Amino acid sequence: MDIKKEHNHCEVIISVACGPRWDYHCHTRTNQWWIRKKVGIIEASFISFAIGTLALLFIVLFAGNGNISAVATVPKWQLIGGLLGAIYVIVIILVIPQIGVAPALVGVIAGQILIGAVIDHFGLFGGVRIPLDAKKVAGICLLFVSLYLINHK
């Protein structure tokens, strides 16, 4: 399945608008030294996930309209997202105090864009097939140039 040539740019605007939230989120998570000092890095990550889980529980209870019990019918590999999210949080907590928020996020974004482009190109995991072209490859290369420039001293 190929993606439509025309699409609503609203999704792009919303995704860009979410970017600053991640900067704030990463900065506050790593700079809450009083939580990390009192309970530990991994424990602080657990607390963060627990608060997020409670927030999602209330959203599901009051605004959800899906069928949460259908999760038992999906392929089990599709449930790995929670584990990968936990790994991401721990890595961010460990890396940001060493290199800063901007370099850490550029690294994360570069990795996500690279893997995302591969997933899109081949339509992996049942996704929409969006072939790579020269402009996308150039954009990915420029992203890695920015990763170098942001981390170069």
Rank of each mutant, 00 (worst) to 15 (best):
C18Y: 14
S146R: 01
G82E: 04
L56P: 00
V106S: 02
K76M: 11
N151S: 12
I35L: 02
N8I: 05
R129H: 14
Y24S: 14
R29L: 08
P75E: 14
K5F: 08
I14H: 07
S69W: 14
R21D: 14
S69V: 10
G111S: 06
V39I: 12
I96A: 04
S48K: 03
I68W: 15
N31R: 03
I3K: 15
V74C: 07
A102E: 10
W22C: 06
I87K: 03
A44V: 01
I130K: 09
I140F: 07
I47S: 01
R36W: 04
T73H: 15
I119W: 03
L147K: 03
I115V: 13
K4M: 09
P20G: 13
M1Y: 15
A17K: 09
G52F: 10
G81F: 12
V108C: 04
A134M: 13
W33V: 00
T73Q: 14
A63F: 15
F58A: 03
R36E: 02
A72D: 05
H7S: 10
I92H: 01
W77G: 00
G116E: 00
F122N: 08
A138D: 04
H25E: 10
V128L: 12
D133Y: 12
L149Y: 04
L142A: 07
Q112S: 01
Y24A: 15
H27I: 08
L94H: 12
I99V: 05
V74Y: 15
I115L: 11
V108F: 11
C141T: 10
D120F: 05
D2A: 10
V95D: 07
L142K: 05
G81C: 07
V108I: 13
V95R: 13
I92M: 12
S15M: 11
I96D: 05
N8R: 09
I99D: 03
V106T: 05
I93P: 02
F144S: 00
D2E: 15
A55D: 03
I130V: 11
R36C: 02
V118W: 15
I113A: 05
G85C: 04
C18D: 12
L56T: 01
K135A: 11
G19P: 06
R36N: 00
I92V: 15
R129P: 01
C26K: 09
L83Q: 04
A63H: 13
I42V: 06
I87R: 03
Q32E: 02
